Simulated scan of single mutants.
Amino acid sequence: MSETVTADPTPDLALARHGDDAAFGRLVAPLRRELHAHCYRMLGSAHDADDALQDALLRAWRALAGFEGRSTLRTWLYTVATRTCLDLVQARGRRALPVDLGPASERVVTGDVPVTEVAWLGPWPDEPGARLEQRESVELAFVAALQHLPGNQRAALVLFEVLGFSAAEIAATMDTSTASVNSALQRARKLVAEKVPSASQQRSLREIDDARLRDVVTGYSSALERGDADALVALLTDDVTWSMPPMAHWYAGRASVDAFVRAVPAAGSCGAWRHLPVGANGQPAVASYRRPPDAPPDAPHTAWSIDVLTLRGDRIAAVTSFIGAEHHARFGLPASLP
């Protein structure tokens, strides 16, 4: 990781090179969030992104004496983070959504049993004030599509399309040739184009006004809280999908989702719901809290899932319910609601 010298030493960089860890912390602090997002795109898991970023910054700290300013510190840190992620991709494999594993369920499945042998894709909490391109680059369809790419193609596409690296810079980052990078980009673009809708969620959200968006999110939440399956199904597109990682089964089409909604989340036997609006993966989402049907009326609703909504126009085209209280903690949400 050594580079040739150019003159751009900041005081903190000079201090950090001589072992001042506080100076190193000040250098990387403004870049932590974007580096974490980069690791999430590469790995499909905020938890894995934690591990990758921690490891990458440790590697960078140990190798900082070899950073001599040929590139910016930001570019160098992205190089370290990318190589760290590639090591994790090789060690841990890719993450999946239920739609990646098999066909949609033909009947409603009850008695849910989590599938623990699958590494599941996870949600990403939105950053307030994030730019359009930042939100677009963590949309669920895009991150899920990246998981189908080999590590080198995944890295090349993210570095080129999201971060604006040149093919030559990517070649240096990945220790390969420019020709290999261009070939990886070509293959990666083809696969991603097959899996990602032509209209991004950011484009879809711009086409409806804020009031209508609030109506859709509120309508989804209130319909579940009332157990009103008709109102919920009225918000859906004809080809809607509903999945619930870590459950392997999923539903496709309005009729199948209608049957699922009536039998499970909108049924009294499922318990009572409360919701909080959140933002996840650059998309509208709600945090779901559930009180079991056998709980006392004054019992709290406990964290259940983060439901990420994919819109087409002003209708919901997909619901991805990431089940698990650990997601609420990631979003800075309480573990229960009174």
Rank of each mutant, 00 (worst) to 15 (best):
R189G: 12
A317K: 06
A168H: 08
L205H: 04
C39W: 00
Q134T: 10
D210C: 14
L159N: 09
A267N: 14
L88Q: 13
V158T: 10
R131E: 11
T320S: 13
V138L: 04
L232R: 06
R107G: 12
T6M: 08
V286D: 11
P245F: 00
R206N: 11
H18R: 15
A179K: 14
A285Q: 08
R206G: 08
S256W: 02
A7K: 14
L73T: 01
S321Y: 02
V216E: 09
A81Y: 03
L236D: 07
G122M: 06
W61K: 04
W120S: 08
T237Q: 11
Q90D: 15
L235A: 06
V278W: 04
D50T: 03
R226H: 11
L159F: 08
E326F: 00
G129H: 02
E225I: 03
D215H: 10
E34K: 01
V115M: 11
P296D: 03
E207H: 12
E127A: 06
V192H: 05
T302F: 08
E225N: 06
G324M: 02
A223L: 09
W124H: 11
Q90R: 15
R315C: 03
V308P: 02
A280V: 08
K195L: 15
A141T: 11
A104N: 09
L140D: 08
L27E: 09
A16H: 10
T218K: 09
N182G: 06
R226Q: 10
R94F: 10
G44A: 05
E136V: 11
V113Q: 11
D55M: 08
V257H: 13
L185T: 05
C270G: 02
S222M: 12
G129V: 00
A263H: 04
W273E: 02
V264S: 12
A49G: 05
R154D: 03
S204Q: 15
L159M: 09
A104R: 00
A56L: 06
N281K: 01
R203H: 15
Y220T: 04
R189H: 10
L309K: 03
L224Y: 10
L205G: 10
D112N: 07
Y78T: 07
G268S: 12
E3C: 12
